[in-house]
Computed example of a mutant assay.
Amino acid sequence: MTPVRIIIIAKEPRPGFAKTRLMPALGARGAADLADRLLRHTFTQALAAKVGPVELCVAPDAETPYWQALVENASGNSGQPVALTQQIEGDLGTRMATAARRGLENGTPVMLIGTDCPTLDAGRLARMAATLAEHDACLCPVRDGGYSLLGLTRLDDALFQDIPWSTGQVASLTRQRLKQLGWCWQESELLMDVDEPADLHHLEEAHPQLARSEP
């Protein structure tokens, strides 16, 4: 199979910066701690999928000790080199398009993923990567109307422009754009992500080890 580059779009899990929509339920520190667990889980699954290079595209600063330690430990434990890149300024679409373009210019298809969908495990990542051998794109939609993964073998900025991010229209608009482009794509089943306090119940049921902090 042609290697596929997994690009994780991630925020450093600082209190008041990451998972702010969960702060009413968890507080700033609790939301940041959950963001850290979700990020580490996502990173571990991306490495375990073994479909190609793994890249952390991060904000606000790739040079902080948090990211340096995370990459060093992962590379040492997995034996896989990890690329660490900085997100550019701009809205989410601008940042994702830039990351995708950079990855495609390296000569492989790309899969852009976030860190808030724990059901996006190594097996599912591998299956979605395999679909890019016969499709222009792939998509993992989530229950709130967004998506947790967008895979691409080529790029068109229409997929990222004028999208109302963090709304229930994201996946449906992306499908419309893919159809307008005349591209073929493959979708997974509907997945669960963790964005709002109401999602915490589902997380506790499906992934209790992620829902609870270590004592």
Rank of each mutant, 00 (worst) to 15 (best):
L38N: 06
F43K: 01
A25V: 07
P53I: 00
E55L: 09
N77T: 13
T44C: 11
S75R: 00
Q45E: 15
T94H: 11
G90K: 10
L26W: 09
A49I: 03
T94C: 10
R40S: 07
L47A: 03
L84T: 09
Q68N: 15
L70I: 10
A25I: 05
G76Q: 13
T42E: 11
H41K: 00
V71I: 13
V54N: 04
A83F: 07
A28Q: 11
I88R: 08
R37Q: 10
I88H: 13
F43M: 06
Y66I: 06
E63T: 15
D36I: 03
A31G: 06
A62P: 04
R29D: 15
G93M: 02
L34W: 03
A31Q: 03
V58W: 00
G27N: 05
G90V: 08
A46C: 12
A32H: 06
Q68V: 15
H41G: 01
A28P: 08
P53L: 00
L26I: 08
A69C: 14
R40D: 11
W67K: 03
E55V: 13
N73S: 11
V82Y: 01
D33S: 14
L84I: 07
V51C: 05
Q86V: 05
L84V: 09
A35S: 12
D61E: 08
N77Y: 11
